[in-house]
């Protein structure tokens, strides 16, 4: 697993990848902060839903709550990235090349995923810090007070927000990787991934009330948003953890047993 982990880091640590990631991180931080702050309104006018309020953003954790709310918008994109990355390894035949060097299949998959999540953790920490800075600059223009942000409570909230987003990313990573392993074809996997995480879950949610407490994508959204009127963050986390464990078991079993042919 360590060999697989270190090998994946070679790919992720290339200058081109780092530059592209840095650019996307800055755009996400500035854009995310701007969108979340401009969407925030007074609590008295807020309806049921996940839109942040001015009061919530003015609290100690408001600076990084902005990051957490911004991340919630990127769920479908993140899921599709993991599905596509995994399916591409099969479509291009690079999974075969990798298995010739690391025949312990589950270790190969686990090491690769761990490396991607490590990279994601570093990127998210940077994104959180940048989002805080951007939000700090934009907050006064949106009637959000920032006095409490730079405090011990603010730092504690920042760590909690980073942990929550990391768990959220891990959920999408495992679910996306499993779908990629099962489907193996990039176009098919992307079509299914986009259709499921995008329109399908949200359309069903409109027509079937329990969907918010059942579908993994909606549960991940609810968790990273700190809970919704339909489901608490804790319940969302526990349910998603269960889905993720099952997905990991299914993905690992199928990958370990299936013939690798292209």
């Amino acid at each position: 697993m360590i060999a697989s982990y270190r090998a994946e880091l070679v790919k992720l640590g290339r200058r081109r990848v780092l530059l592209a990631t840095a650019l996307i991180t800055v755009l996400f931080a500035v854009g995310g902060a701007a969108v979340v702050l401009s969407a925030a309104g007074p609590a008295a006018e807020a309806g049921p839903g996940r839109t942040p309020t001015v009061e919530a953003l003015s609290a100690a954790g408001g600076g990084t709550a902005t990051f957490r709310f911004a991340a919630a918008f990127a769920g479908t994109f993140l899921f599709v990235v993991f599905v596509g990355m995994t399916a591409a390894e099969f479509s291009r035949g690079t999974i075969r090349t990798s298995l010739l060097r690391q025949p312990r299949r589950v270790r190969l998959l686990a090491g690769r995923l761990a490396a991607i999540l490590t990279f994601a953790a570093v990127t998210l920490a940077a994104a959180e810090a940048l989002t805080w800075v951007a939000a700090r600059a934009l907050a006064p223009g949106n009637a959000v007070a920032v006095d409490a942000w730079a405090s011990t409570s603010g730092l504690t909230a920042a760590l909690a927000d980073l942990g929550a987003v990391l768990l959220w990313v891990t959920g999408y990573a495992v679910l996306g990787t499993t779908l990629g392993v099962l489907l193996r074809s990039v176009p098919v996997a992307l079509a299914v991934g986009i259709a499921w995480a995008g329109p399908f879950e949200h359309l069903v949610q409109d027509a079937w009330e329990p969907a918010s407490r059942v579908f993994p994508g909606l549960l991940l959204e609810a968790f990273v948003a700190g809970g919704t009127p339909d489901v608490t963050a804790t319940r969302a986390l526990v349910t998603v953890a269960l889905y993720t464990a099952v997905a990991a078991l299914v993905g690992a079993t199928v990958f370990a047993r299936r013939d690798i042919t292209t």
């Binding site: 060999a3 697989s4 270190r6 090998a7 994946e8 070679v10 790919k11 290339r14 090349t97 990798s98 060097r101 690391q102 190969l108």
Partner: peptide, 12 residues
């Protein structure tokens, strides 16, 4: 870079 990835993967 491809060879570096495979060298690490195979502990070569």
């Amino acid at each position: 870079e491809n060879l570096r990835v495979l060298a690490r993967l195979g502990r070569h």
